[in-house]
Amino acid sequence: MKFDTPLIHGYLIKRYKRFLSDIKLDDGSIVVAHCTNSGSMKTCIEEGAEVYLSPAKDPKRKTRYTWEMIKLNNKWVGINTSHPNLIAFEAVKNGEIDKLAGYSHVQREVRVGNSRIDIMAQNDRETCFIEVKNVTMKDGEYARFPDAVTTRGKKHLDELIQLKKEGIRAVMLYVIQRSDVSVFAPAGDIDPDYANTLREAWKEGVEIIPVRVKVTPNDIVIDKELPFDLSL
């Protein structure tokens, strides 16, 4: 995924009210940027750290900028939660994830029952439903999800379990927007219900694919698939 307009460099002053952040730009001016991440953003906040913003395309939007990434330990961490679905869609469509390659038709936001699944991929042999989650929390070498209780996330796992029981390929795809981790694990200490449901999904045959991406001010690209540990 490439950024279609040049990003704007600055420094984080603070994040507040979940969806707002004060940013000091290189020219010394202070602007308010929208933060798309509604979670706790554990391990993603460091006041004074370098950040990049994108300018809002809608001239009527109250916040003129969107906070895209922050530099932590000399590496960029993507915090825009609207990107992983597009990253995943492009990657599946272009065959960039080995376990999800070979599909001739890839579609976003497909209704299944009373819900929408992020991606449906099809070829002449099978249909695959893929749910996508954004991961930014770091715990040592682990990338962990979620960083706050997510009843919606548990609901999505339940839907994948049901699809698998109906004989349809079901995949939980975690897009990890930081390169300083090497293993994925659920955050059972934060949301035990989600962690337990993920273990149940794995036992029922739902596939778990954690993918690390490389975040830069120019683009966000697939780096590699990571192993996972469901024991935490």
Rank of each mutant, 00 (worst) to 15 (best):
P192Q: 02
E200C: 05
K203G: 02
R212M: 15
P217K: 06
N196I: 06
V206S: 01
D189H: 15
D180H: 09
A185P: 08
T197L: 03
I220K: 13
S179P: 11
E200D: 14
I220W: 07
V215S: 12
P210A: 02
D180G: 12
V181L: 02
A195L: 11
V206W: 00
D180I: 02
R212P: 09
S179L: 05
D191A: 04
A187V: 01
S179N: 14
I190K: 08
V183G: 04
T216S: 15
N218K: 15
L198K: 10
N196L: 14
A201I: 01
T197M: 14
W202A: 15
P217T: 09
A187F: 11
D193H: 10
E207F: 01
G188W: 02
V183N: 06
K214F: 03
W202V: 13
A195M: 08
R199G: 10
V215F: 07
V181R: 02
L198T: 05
E204M: 13
D219G: 06
F184D: 05
P210C: 02
R199H: 07
T216N: 08
R199A: 11
R212D: 09
N218V: 04
P210T: 05
K214I: 07
A195P: 12
A195V: 07
P186A: 13
A201H: 04
D189C: 04
D193P: 01
I220H: 11
F184V: 00
V183F: 06
K214A: 07
D193L: 12
V206C: 00
S182D: 14
S182C: 07
A187T: 11
D189Q: 10
L198D: 07
S182F: 00
Y194S: 05
S182P: 07
N218Q: 15
L198Y: 06
D189N: 14
R199M: 10
V181E: 11
I208E: 12
R199E: 11
